[in-house]
Amino acid sequence: MNFEEKLKSGKMVITSEIGPPKGTNIMPHIKEAEGIKDKVDAFNVTDLQSSVMHLGSLATSRLLAERGLEPVFQITCRDRNRLALQSDLLSASVLGIRNVLVITGDHTVLGDHPQAKPVFDLDSVSLLKVASGLMKGKDMVGNELDGIPEFFLGAVVNPGYEPQELQIMKMEQKIEAGARFFQTQAVYDLTSFESFMKRVLPFGAPVLGGIVLLKSAGMAKFMNKNVAGVNIPDKYINMMAAADKKDRPKVSISIAAELIKGMKTLCSGIHIMSLGWEKYIPDVLEASGF
């Protein structure tokens, strides 16, 4: 079963993330992924995450696919105009990549090349629409394609974002434009996540709840301050603050497990953004009862 089939089967799906390096030293990341491939159903490959220049997500996705791991190719609208975006989608297809996660992308000024020209020719919604069009054999101006790609399109949604209504509205638009699954921003508040899921359940699109492993109380506070839609409750911050440095992974794992257990009944799967703590993923899953 591939990622799509697994989601359709109703099985709880687990995905994780790979951030390609700034440089060519990709193999350690691939090895790490291979180490947990039995626990994880698919791997997201980030596309110049945070607008910082990195190795490309397309090449990395291909390296995973070659090794029998299932990639989710992330593509942002920041760096390419509509020609390049369509072309890269076709490239992904011929490289054996089916899963595509479409994101608008962070603004260039937030990354390490603030002088760069931001493109934003398309946005996530329009790119989803364009990708759907490619699957129907047409490029966005209606020209016939010689060879038609097939994708399993995904998008992101931020449940904690205010006003939530706006996210839901955009989620609907994304579904309309062709998104077949969603990944969420990190979830720390199960009550509000539950109410969000109740709202979006009728849409019928599977949702993978987002998990970010907390590394410290400082990180939690930083995220609360700077990351849109993230609200880490004080109890978790206090737990992290109270833990010794060596005990922090253990505490973090227990928090993640608590959240995952809570989410299991609410959504179709879990997306773990480990941010360098890939090695703890098996522990997290074990603690969550997988």
Partner: peptide
Amino acid sequence: KSLLNGPCGG
């Protein structure tokens, strides 16, 4: 970002 179809979420 001159988005035309709703906010980016940022």
